[in-house]
Design a protein around this nucleic acid. Structure first.
Length: 219
DNA sequence: AACTCGGGGCA
DNA sequence: TGCCCAGAGTT
């Protein structure tokens, strides 16, 4: 496990590697962000943005989403995987916003997670990106990077990864931290072919050192 | 903890 | 073709 100081160094380096790290999902208000993040599960944000470009022209409010038949909304997001369930969830979610939350996106994790299709990760993205409330959204990238570098233990659950990060990173940096780790994970510390050879963090990365040693033995 | 949903993008 | 993608819900 890395120390707080080492983790800080890692995060700063990631910030230098990806100075523009931020949420890339199209949105102009919390409601649109909520829809976009819900759609983004298990698919790339580029694809989500392609769909929401037209979607947000047609649907502005929760009422708009439930005014059409389910089949129509499904067709409108058809190019995204899992679109049947996602369309169903969005309509259910919009009904809840109308009936229980006065058409406003709730601003607590507990309430957000009551919405269908909204888990802990989505709730944390909405909190931090839409409302500026400190949160660390742990997706596959954040989890993988945390485990490879040694921010946490290999066996940690997603929730444990989040709790460890919150403990080791100052609150003011939670939001930027998850974006930096996501960019680092997506473009550099990839799931398939991590670029350890050119990684500025190789010296303190337990997985990287292991991989480089294995490579050395093969020669 | 394991399984399922799922079309598009990329090697 | 095969494999993965800014997960969530159910068993």
């Amino acid at each position: 496990m890395l120390t707080k100081k080492q983790i800080r160094h890692c995060l700063e380096t990631m910030g230098e590697m990806f100075p523009d790290a931020r949420c890339e999902l199209n949105h102009s208000n919390p409601f649109e962000l909520l829809i976009a993040v819900t759609l983004s599960a298990q698919c790339t944000d580029a694809l989500v943005n392609k769909v929401t470009k037209n979607l947000f022209q047609k649907y502005k409010t929760p009422d708009d989403y439930i005014a059409v038949p389910l089949e129509e909304l499904q067709q409108d997001i058809r190019s995204i995987g899992l679109y049947r369930n996602k369309a169903k969830n969005i309509q259910k979610l919009c009904r809840m916003l109308i009936e229980e939350y006065g058409r406003e996106v709730p601003q607590t994790r507990e309430e957000l997670m009551k919405l269908p299709g909204v888990g802990r990760k989505t709730a944390n993205v909405v909190l931090s990106v839409a409302f500026g409330i400190p949160a660390i959204a742990v997706d596959t990238h954040v989890e993988r990077v945390s485990k490879r570098l040694g921010f946490c233990r290999y066996k940690d659950s997603v929730l444990e990864v989040e709790q460890t990060l919150m403990k080791k990173v100052p609150k003011e940096e939670w939001s930027i931290t998850h974006h930096r780790m996501i960019f680092f994970g997506r473009y550099h510390c990839k799931a398939q072919r991590p670029q350890c050879e050119i990684c500025p963090l190789l010296d303190l990365c337990r997985e990287g050192k292991k991989r480089m040693k294995q490579k050395e033995n093969k020669k």
